[in-house]
Design a protein around this nucleic acid. Structure first.
Lengths: 213, 213
DNA sequence: CCGAGACTATCGATCGATCGATCGAACGTC
DNA sequence: GACGTTCGATCGATCGATCGATAGTCTCGG
């Protein structure tokens, strides 16, 4: 078979959870989308909540891993932050469904299932916090409230998943470049464009999220 | 009675829809939170969807009206945009529950119920678009993709409702001021702080959203 | 000032539909 | 015949919504 049933269930869940929400998606909707009976679904998942939690964990693990890989060789905080922004925007533009699930459905999870998800998100946000703090310490970023600025930039970049369409006028590269510029400016750093590893981000996104664009 | 049952139903719906989502909130949850039987609920609402749609329309009408009032006397695009940002941030910090419902549950509405909601949101966004376009035309804003920048800033400001706590280190005024600064910088406009009607925004928010802060 | 009728607010009980989940049986492949 | 997949049938629970009944409140002719 071209794709395994397991993968079809996962893809169906991501698609439906993203568009109709976790509680708005029934077991039978999932089964229809995955081209299985509702009973067969349970061969590939635990409960519906287990399925959601697993989607979130793998999505966040992928993002965290990709961010570490992309910034491993960054020469400084400006380059590092711009790379984080570019990667984040690319990931959210390429996989908006997965992202929307991660961003919007976190608090339908029970505390036990939520804990590892929040831990992964926190680990990812620490990469941003470190880049910003390093830049402030080095005198290249200027912001009165680094933690607030970090949250503002993260929300700004995550928002891409809510509206971006590949059929719009902007190509992925332009989009990532534009957001890197917005973030740099917001941090009071008028850096020349291109100071980040856009090509490397594209490679990583293509590898981790499956080819596209 | 101190507050009417009608108001209790509305408040219960805003609270529960915001925290558990529309599909995650049952009629019986609503009834319990509003201190009514599930049957009595239907004296104050049509269907559950009607209740959601009405909440969204009134919330967006309030925001739209407040934004027009706040910017009516703005002397220029910079002042106008900074005022829009400050008002938006204040509104989202003061009424995060209502805001989360408006931002996250739009697409559970049927097309017929969604249409007027989207129309209101579009009218509100046009205020932002006009301010940005005017600023670009006047040479005070610099951005390659004004429409994308508008969406980025809107998402950044709306994100406040996802994390802001009045018990945190930042007071409302500082928060609004900081976001106005972030937005100005992102638009390539290093304006001196204070160029906006923060006091007026506070007044309008206090009047429209009930006193607070 | 009375009381019949209308209206508002509230409820317990219950409707049919759908929910998430499970069962035992049948399928195909090695 | 063992194992990994798939299914129809069905479970008890819960869903959104409606019903008729019961108080309270208001209005207004006599």
């Amino acid at each position: 078979m071209a794709v395994s049933s397991r993968e079809r269930v996962r893809a169906a869940a991501v698609k439906l959870f993203a568009t109709k929400g976790f509680h708005g998606t029934g077991i039978r909707d999932l089964a229809q989308e995955a081209e299985l009976s509702s009973a067969s679904l349970y061969h590939y998942m635990g409960t519906k909540e287990d399925l959601l939690a697993e989607i979130m964990r793998t999505a966040l693990n992928r993002l965290l891993h990709a961010a570490r890989e992309a910034t491993a060789a960054s020469p400084g905080p400006v380059h590092r932050l711009r790379t984080l922004v570019a990667l984040h925007v690319l990931a959210h533009a390429v996989g908006p469904a997965e992202t929307r699930v991660v961003d919007n459905e976190v608090d339908v999870l029970s505390p036990a299932a939520r804990e590892p998800v929040v831990a992964l998100r926190d680990a990812y946000e620490r990469l941003w916090a470190a880049a910003i703090d390093d830049g402030v310490a080095a005198g290249v970023f200027h912001t009165e409230h680094p933690a607030v600025t970090r949250l503002a930039l993260l929300e700004m970049c995550s928002g891409v998943a809510r509206w971006y369409s590949p059929r719009g006028p902007l190509a992925l590269d332009q989009l990532a470049e534009h957001y890197a510029e917005l973030a740099s400016r917001a941090l009071g750093c008028a850096s020349p464009p291109g100071v980040h590893d856009l090509g490397r981000c594209r490679e990583i996104v293509a590898k981790e999220w499956g080819m596209s664009g």
